[in-house]
């Protein structure tokens, strides 16, 4: 055993080699030309970034290691304070994609939603989105607050929130959902990164995820056709009469399901509440009616 210590020079050489390999690997990762991504959390619940962490094939690690260079995100980034916001500013000088989750709170010049303090000045969500959107290659509004106002703009809309497309004077790809399904986010970004802009519908949603109504592909459709309706939650029939918004909501929920395809709201014997739709939540209520 003691023989191993006989040659300290050899030992140190071995270590040096390892160190160089490690350095090379980490340097190659740094210079890997992935597109930069700013993921701004604005006026919302930060539930879309949590949903992204639930992504499955590709998962969040593949996404971060191979698809994008996520430079700025409040929930995940190591840096804090001014040093964090400096990264945001630096990214603006590069080619990047902007994801916004949360609505734009416009009341009192945006001061209901302050995201940073820089050089003694408060930076509002509104200001940060404007700054980044002016320079971003693509802008995605992820989640229903960013896409349509969503719960943040629910009546009486105390924060005077509006959607990102309403706020910006440029093209915004809407990726709604409350929260957005991680595969819809990563799938949309994958199209942009590896191909080009995905085909969008009249509301600027990627057709692959928002092309067909839930009702059209619902596993309970046959009950609807036969006129068999559930009268309370927990029953197996069509929940149209309980207020299901599947007929007016376009998402791939029935075929993709949620959380690594384990389940989805209708699979859990509850109606669709139209969370990915314009007008959610106000015009989707009551969510359940007897």
């Amino acid at each position: 055993m003691k023989d191993e210590k006989l040659c300290p020079v050899l030992d140190s050489k071995k270590k040096t080699v390892n160190k160089i390999i490690d350095l090379a690997i980490s340097e190659s990762k740094k210079t890997n030309k992935k597109i930069n991504l700013i993921w701004l959390e604005a006026c919302g619940c930060s539930g879309n970034i949590i949903s992204l962490l639930n992504a499955d094939d590709p998962d969040i690690i593949f996404f971060l290691e191979n698809m994008v260079n996520l430079t700025y995100n409040n929930s995940l980034m190591r840096k804090e304070g001014e040093r964090a916001f400096e990264v945001f500013l630096k990214t603006l000088e590069t080619e990047f994609i902007l994801v916004v989750e949360g609505a734009i709170s416009t009341k009192e010049n945006g001061f209901y939603n302050v995201i940073a303090k820089y050089n003694n000045k408060y930076i509002t969500g509104m200001e940060a989105v404007k700054m980044a959107a002016d320079k971003a290659k693509y802008v995605l509004s992820v989640g229903s607050c960013a896409s349509y106002g969503g719960p943040s703009a629910a009546r009486p809309n105390p924060s005077e929130s509006i959607s990102v497309p309403d706020f910006l004077d440029r093209e915004v790809i809407r990726v709604p959902g409350c929260p957005c399904h991680p595969t819809w986010i990563i799938g949309t970004l994958a199209h942009i990164i590896y191909f080009d802009k995905p085909k969008l519908d009249e509301e600027n949603r990627p057709v692959i995820f928002y092309g067909v109504t839930i009702h059209d592909r619902c596993e309970r459709r046959s009950y609807f056709e036969k006129g068999l309706f559930a009268e309370k939650l927990g029953e197996k029939e069509c929940m149209f009469k309980l207020g299901c918004r599947g007929p007016i909501t376009r998402t791939v929920c029935p075929t993709m399901e949620w959380n690594s395809r384990h389940n989805w709201p209708i699979g859990d014997n509850t109606p669709c509440i139209g969370c990915a739709r314009e007008g959610f939540p106000d015009s989707m209520e009551p969510f359940v009616r007897f």
Partner: peptide, 12 residues
Amino acid sequence: AILGGKAPHNHG
């Protein structure tokens, strides 16, 4: 999600 439909924002 298996018991509550989806997460975040479950229905179950």
